[in-house]
Structures are given as C-alpha cells and as structure tokens.
Design a protein around this nucleic acid. Structure first.
Lengths: 116, 116
DNA sequence: CGAAAATGAAACGCTTGCGTAACGGTCCGC
DNA sequence: GCGGACCGTTACGCAAGCGTTTCATTTTCG
C-alpha cells in the first residue's frame, strides 16, 4: 500500500521534521550522511565503501569521511572482512538503530499532524 | 486527514528521498538550510532574520549566512523593510518555488513507491 | 535632542567536508 | 612469486559553516 501525499502534505511533512530535527539534535548530519546511514540500516548487508559510493553516486573518500564522523558518534562501526582483507564491512550499532528509531518516530508524529 | 505511516514506511521514505536528492542535486543544502527554506515558503510572510533564528533555535549569523548561500543560488531574496529600515524582509523567488515544487514531487513519487 | 535598545551584517579563528591525487595492503592470474 | 588490479585510507589545498564578538544603521523614548 503506497503512501499518497498531496504536494502540501509532502513539503509540510519535510518541513516539520527538518525543523524539529534542527531544534532537537545537535549532531546535524549532512544529507549525504543521512542517506548513507539509512542505506546501511535499511538495505540488507553487507555494505562496503565502494558499494555505498556507487549507490550514492559519490567518491570513495566521501564515504570514508562520513563513516569517520558517524563512527565517532557511535552510529556505525567498521570491521575488516576476513574473507577478503581488502574490504571493510560496515556494521550497524545499537546506538545507530536507536537513533533511527527515534527519527522514524519523529516522522510518524509529524505525519499524523499533517492536515489534509 | 493525517498521514499514517508505519516505521518502515517513514524511514524508507526518508531514505529514498535523501538518496535521490543526493544523486540528482549538486547543491546539497544543509538540513538547517532546508528547514529555513521550507519555513520561508510554507509559512505566511513576513520573515525576518530574527524571527527565523528564534524559530529554528539558532543564532542570527546562522540565518544571515544561510540567506547568503541560498541567495547566491537564487532560492531566496532579501529586501530592506521600508517601514522599519533595521529589518530585512526575506522574499521568495521563482527559482526557489520551482526548486521546492520539484522536491515535493520527489517526495510524492517516492511515497507512492513505498510498500506497505 | 540624545542615550539606549534593536536589527542585521561583518570580522575572527576554528572545525568540518570536499575533490583530486597519491599511498599501503591485499588478492589474483600467469 | 610477482606484476597488475582492486580496495579503503590518507594527504593536500580549498571552500563553507559555526559561535562569539563587534559594528553600523535605525528606531524609540525619556
């Protein structure tokens, strides 16, 4: 069942969620970082630097830096792949799951408040 | 009529919209900038630097800089208030409206593609 | 008037992210 | 085994955003 939105609802939802996120969250992730984080948590693993770079349409150092930042925040983790030690496998963390869970709740709450 | 979303749909929607926006749009606005832009276009004017700063919970220079950046992109415009020449009134632009219209379409499209 | 308040912008030093290019470690085919 | 390809990281110079502080302009009000 798809999500049917009017133009007003679509932008209104994005507006309120962004606003609330700016007000509440000091971390202030980039749009790119958020896209990476969601990709990691919503798409079945394994995830690699190269794969994420290709999916996002950005260069590898962009992914490396985003993982540095989000790793420092505890939102993701990195582990060497033992089967091919050139690869790095990106792992989810409890904190990251919690973070996205809260963020999802924020979207849902603001969605409920959307007028027709 | 509110927008009812499951947790999976909420995050999935945000995921795909972010992903597509990263891939397509070279401008890569900050979450703060996006919040400011949406505030300007979705909330009835007039908008001032001070007012936006209070709404977003940030300092005034943050707003000034965001308006500098988005002004250079043609997304907003600034005009001195003639009735109180200390104030600056933020104006919408055709390009800005177009930008948000496209962004709204993106949200709607990705919403339609959301599975239950 | 003239002093104090208010508004937005500019200055400053700092941090963070970017793209390009170069680098070390690892795998693979010959 | 060894040369080349592959993967992620690091280095570099640069641009952009941040918070705090200071400033110029304008208004307000005693």
């Amino acid at each position: 069942m798809p999500v049917e939105l009017t133009p007003s609802q679509a932008l209104g939802l994005w507006h309120k969620v962004s606003l609330e996120q700016v007000r509440v969250d000091g971390r202030d992730l980039t749009l790119r970082q958020m896209a990476i984080l969601l990709q990691i948590y919503l798409v079945p693993p394994p995830h690699t630097v190269r794969g994420l770079a290709a999916t996002l349409g950005v260069t590898k150092p962009v992914i490396t830096r985003a993982l540095d930042t989000m790793g420092a925040l505890g939102l993701v983790d990195r582990v060497r792949d033992d089967r091919d030690r050139r690869n790095v496998v990106i792992k989810r963390t409890v904190d990251g799951a919690l973070y996205l869970e809260k963020f999802g709740d924020l979207i849902i709450d603001q969605g409920r408040k959307q007028p027709k």
